[in-house]
Design a protein around this nucleic acid. Structure first.
Lengths: 110, 110
DNA sequence: TCTGTATATGCCTTGACAGTTATATAACCA
DNA sequence: TGGTTATATAACTGTCAAGGCATATACAGA
């Protein structure tokens, strides 16, 4: 596990980030909200920590996990050159139509 | 494997997409460029096909693989609310400084 | 029809990771 | 100090995907 891409592949981790977007949270809060075991939450948080997507503030025995969105900029950068492409193609319906035709040809040959 | 997020987790697949961004390519071309086995390329292409990130045009025995950037819009949408956050924090150096201090405190206590 | 070319698929092994349970660590409180 | 709370980690299991090898499929040309 190295990049933010891998970290985002897991849907649970995406949910954790979404929850931290509202405000920092304790591990226990996340356990309640996600309905999964505490060790599992801690593991996902460790992965997110390692790629820099969250940081921890310790407060006695409690640990506040806080979002650090900067690594997402890496993904945004990778995405950039594609953005223009899909925007440019929004008005072209031919793709969809042609695909429907091909599906028809393949499956509909009863 | 379901979403574009999972598809992008693999660096080889990201490379394939980058190559297809220039122009459509034959499977054989990708094999040469990526320096990996033909079956493996075909398998990655299958994953990309299943999430709709590429499409195929058949030309005799050859298959032209072509980029279909639309599913990336899903990722872009997910990213959207985060974008403002990291942009808002670009000018705050305190984060970095505080982190350096904490590292210092932890490891530098010789 | 046979042969070569281009690509896909099946089977297998290995490694990584999600998830669980049990336990360790660490700080607070009585 | 002992007990309790909050979180992390270790050990384990099951699953799934990457990658390799062998083979099937599909088409073209002779």
């Amino acid at each position: 596990m190295v990049t933010a891409f891998e970290a985002l592949a897991d849907p649970t981790r995406r949910r954790i980030l979404d929850l931290l977007r509202e405000r920092p949270r304790l591990v226990g809060e996340l356990v309640d909200l996600l309905q999964i075991s505490q060790p599992l939450v801690s593991k996902h948080l460790r992965v997110l920590r390692e790629v820099g997507l969250v940081r921890v503030r310790q407060d006695a025995q409690r640990r506040w996990y806080e979002l650090r969105p900067e690594p997402l900029a890496e993904i945004n950068t990778w995405l950039e050159p594609y953005r223009q492409l899909w925007e440019a193609r929004y008005d072209r319906l031919e793709d969809v139509l042609q695909e429907l035709q091909e599906e028809e040809r393949k499956h509909g040959k009863t």
